[in-house]
Structure formats: C-alpha cells, structure tokens
C-alpha cells in the first residue's frame, strides 16, 4: 500500500460541449487524512469527485488511487477501494429493501452468501441502522436514508470514503449524528460540502475550489480564518467562527 493514497496531478476536464470544468488541479492526500473540498456552486466539486472513481476520464492529467493509476484496466479495482456516498441518497438506494441494497456491492464482488450477510449486518450496525434491515428505502427518513447509503458503501470495505454533501437536507439532530458517526471512521475521507461547520468538525485539511482551480489548500482553521480568501471564493466563515450577533462575544477558534 502506497503512503500517498490519493494523488491528482494537473487534472483538466472539459465537458463534451467544450465548457471547461477543471483547469489543472493537483493535490496529494495521504492515508487516514480527512479532507474537505469546498467551493461555490459550479466550482467543480462534483466533477472532481467523479474523477476519483473513474466515472469521468480526464481530458489531461492523472489520477492515482493507492498504487493504481486510474485507467480502463484498473477502474474496477479502484471502485472497490473508493466508496462513494452520493448527494441524493435516493440515487444510491435503488434496491427493494435496505438489506438488498447494502448487499448489492458485496454480491457484485462475488463474495459467498454468508460473508455477504455478515458484511450487511456489520455495516448496518456501524451506522446504527440494523433495525431498518428489511424496510424498503422509500419508507426511510432523510437521516435514515443517509445512514443506509453510507452502510451500502461500507459493506464493500473501501479504503477511501468520498462523500458529496453528506449533511445536505438533514435536520440538525440527524446532521449531528452523522458528524459523530463520520468522526469514528478511520478511512481516508474526502468530503465535498457547503457545510463549513461540518468541515471544521471533521476535517483537518481543506481544499478550496474556485472556477476549476484550487485557490487554497491547507489546514482547515487557517483557511477559514482568512476572510479575504473566503470572500474571493464566494464562501463565508463557518457560523461557529463568527461572532455571536446576540451577545456580541467573539467565537474562540
């Protein structure tokens, strides 16, 4: 296992109609790191994520996952080690029941049935959703759907978790539970989000994307303290770092 688990080098991508989306991006993420990818709408976050599991092929540049440079021949192996959690869990939970869905990946890996069952139970227990096992996905609440979607990637035992807006559309309590759950994971995490407070809670490192370029890459706290940088990138300080409008006290971070 390589120490540099995700490496992106001079990645460029244009849509089929010629619109450039990523304009030369490079970064290196090491094992066990937790990285937030933030940026305004249309900054290229989703496009970047879609490169990390080989759904999109770069116009130029390179993506390397572990020891494998991403190419047609390695894409299956890469998808095995990169677990992708989608923004809309409805897109991800397509099987008739929760158990079927969590089993979908392991069954595609060709694992024996007992092993699949075992993995389903373990993954659901990890996210605290074992009691939902036999429910159909459309009967779940937003938070439950999110948990099950995470379980459905965990059951493939990925090394890397890539998440697109995991806290979107969750009520505050479900969001808090999600943050607590994610903080227990030892996987390498890449989280694309607008929820800067969650980024602050979960990620030591933040990458800011703007207009298809990386405008900043560094420790999360340093970046979020730089108001000018945030403004340039169409972002705003996380609420927990803003002063309290009611009592006027400054946040301590």
């Amino acid at each position: 296992m390589s120490h540099h688990i995700v490496e992106v080098k001079d990645l460029k991508y244009s849509y089929p109609d010629g619109t450039p989306a990523l304009d030369g991006i490079s970064f290196l993420i090491t094992h066990g790191e937790s990285v937030a990818v933030v940026g305004s709408n249309g900054a290229g976050k989703s496009t970047l994520l879609h490169h990390l599991n080989g759904y999109l092929t770069p116009t130029s540049g390179m993506v390397r996952i572990g020891d494998l440079p991403l190419s047609k021949s390695t894409v299956q192996a890469v998808r095995r080690s990169v677990g992708m959690v989608f923004q809309d869990p409805d897109d991800q939970l397509f099987m008739p029941t929760v158990a079927d869905d969590v089993a979908f990946g392991p069954l595609n890996l060709g694992l024996p049935l007992e092993e699949v069952n075992d993995r389903v139970d373990r993954a659901l227990t990890t996210v605290g959703a074992l009691h939902l096992k036999n429910r159909p996905p459309y009967k779940l609440s937003g938070g439950e759907k999110r948990s099950v979607a995470i379980a459905s990637t965990l059951s493939m035992s990925p090394d890397i978790l890539v998440m697109d807006e995991p806290s979107a559309n969750l009520d505050p309590q479900a969001r808090r539970r999600l943050i607590e759950l994610l903080s227990t994971f030892t996987h390498t995490k890449i989280i694309a989000t607008h929820d800067l407070d969650m980024a602050l809670d979960l990620c030591d490192r933040t990458i800011i994307l703007h207009g298809g370029l990386i405008t900043a890459d560094g420790p999360t706290l340093d970046i979020f303290r730089d108001s000018a940088l945030l403004r340039r990138s169409h972002l705003e300080k996380p609420l927990s770092m803003q002063g309290c409008p009611a009592c006027g006290s400054m946040a301590v971070k």
Partner: peptide
C-alpha cells in the same frame, strides 16, 4: 439525469451488468 446518477451509483459498487439479490 437521475438515471445517469443511479447508473453511476451502481458502477461505484461494482455493477457488471448482472443484478444479484440475496433473496
């Protein structure tokens, strides 16, 4: 668009043209 995203989600979990179920 949703159809595309679902297909992507299936690819991410090793879909190879066959759908297997536990039932």
């Amino acid at each position: 668009n949703r159809g595309r995203r679902i297909y992507l989600a299936m690819l991410c979990r090793g879909f190879d043209g066959e759908i297997h179920t536990m039932r």
